[in-house]
Design a protein around this nucleic acid. Sequence first.
DNA 1: TTGACATGGATAGTGTAGCTCTCCAATAGT
DNA 2: ACTATTGGAGAGCTACACTATCCATGTCAA
Lengths: 212, 212
Amino acid sequence: MRIAELSQTTGVPVPTIKYYLREGLLPAGELTSPNQARYDDRHVQRLRLVRVLLDIGRLPIATIRDLLTELDRPDPDVHEVLGRALPATVGTRETSDPAMLAAAHERVRSLIKERGWLLSDNARTRQSAAEVVAAFQQVGADVEHLLEQYADLAEQIAVHDLRFVAQAGGNEGKLHAAVVGSILGDSLLAALRRMAQEHESAKMFGIRDDSC
Amino acid sequence: MRIAELSQTTGVPVPTIKYYLREGLLPAGELTSPNQARYDDRHVQRLRLVRVLLDIGRLPIATIRDLLTELDRPDPDVHEVLGRALPATVGTRETSDPAMLAAAHERVRSLIKERGWLLSDNARTRQSAAEVVAAFQQVGADVEHLLEQYADLAEQIAVHDLRFVAQAGGNEGKLHAAVVGSILGDSLLAALRRMAQEHESAKMFGIRDDSC
DNA sequence: TTGACATGGATAGTGTAGCTCTCCAATAGT
DNA sequence: ACTATTGGAGAGCTACACTATCCATGTCAA
C-alpha cells in the first residue's frame, strides 16, 4: 500500500499523512527504494487512532506522540504504562487564587485517603482534580455533594473500564483498549450524560413538548 | 471599580478584559463619562465564569458568548434554555465513513428509545454520541457493553446533576448551576475517573508499589 | 521505451483562535 | 497643572494543525 491508498482508505489527505510522519505520529513505511515506501494495515489502524484522539479526544499532537510512544514499548507492564501515559491526557491550568487551589488539593487528598485509593505519586491527575474543584469554588458553586457522588460513580465507571481493558487480548491490546477507553470514554460519558440530563430536566421542570 | 481593579481581582490582564468586552463575553461597564466606566461584582463573577469555561471547559469564545447570552435572557424557562444552550458545548467532527456513522446514529436512537429518554429534536447531543460510538468502532473497539453500562451510570449522574441545579436559588441561579455543573462536571468526572481507573488498575494488575 | 503521473522528503506558507501591543484623546487623581 | 490611567479601536503576535510547493527519483500503462 502506498501513501495515496493509505489516504483513500482513511480519508486523511496525503499532505496530512506526511505531516504526521514528520511529527512521529506514524511510523515510517518500509522503504523499497530511496523514495518509495510501503504501508500496511498497521498504518491504517494507527492513522485512525490518531484521528480519533485528535477529533474526539482533542489531544494535542505532542501528547498523542507521547501516548503512542508508550503504546509501542516492547513487553509493556500495563499498569505501569497507564500510570505514566494517561495522566498526560488531562489538562492543567494556572488558577488565579493559590490559596483556593491549595485548599482544593487538600480536599482531593482527603477524598483519596477516605476511599483508600491506591495511586502512584504522579501528580497530574490529582492536580487536575484539584483544579476543577477550585474552579467550582471560584464560580461560587458548592462542589461538596457532587464530589462525593461523582467519586462513587467514578469507582463504578472504572470497574467497567478495567473490564473493557481486561477483555482485550495481549498486553498490546490491553494498552490500546485502555487508551481508547479512557479518551473516548470521557466523550461517550459526556454525551450520554447530556442526554440523560435533558431527560431528567424534562421530568423535573415539566415538558413543554414543543419539539418531540 | 475600574478596569485595573477588575484585572487585579481576577488575575486577568487588562488587554484580555478589553478583548472580552469587544467579543461580548463581558457586558460593558456603566459609563460615567465618554471614556470612563465603572465595573462591579457581577463583572468579577462573569469574568471568573468565562475563565473557567475557557480553561477547564475548553469552550471556544464564540460558544461561551452564546452560552452567556442564554444565561442573560430575562425570565428564562430553565429546561428550554438548557435544551438550547448545553448541546452547543459538545463538539462535532467529520467522520471518514458515513455508513459507520449512520449505523452509530441508529444505535443511539435505539438506546434512547429503549430507555424512554425524553429528548427534544435538537440533534447535537445525539450527533456527538453517535460520533463517539462510530469512533470506537473505527479503532476496532466493541463499544456495546460500555454503551449500556455508561447509559445506566449517566442516568444516575444526571439525577445528581439536576439535584445540583435544583438546589440553586432562582431561575438565574439554576441556569448558572446547570452551565457550571455540566461543563465543569465533565472535567470533574473525568479527573475522578482517571484516579479510580488507576486504583482499579492497581487492584487488577497488581501493585509494583514503586511510588507510594 | 517513453512520457505522464505519483512518491518521499524538505521547506515554506496558511488559517484560526486567543490573546497582546500600540496608539489616541479624554479624564482622574494629586 | 501635570502625570498616570482609561475606554476604545486596530494591528500584531504566538501556537497549532495543517496545506502547498518543489524536486529528484520512481512507477507504470501505452
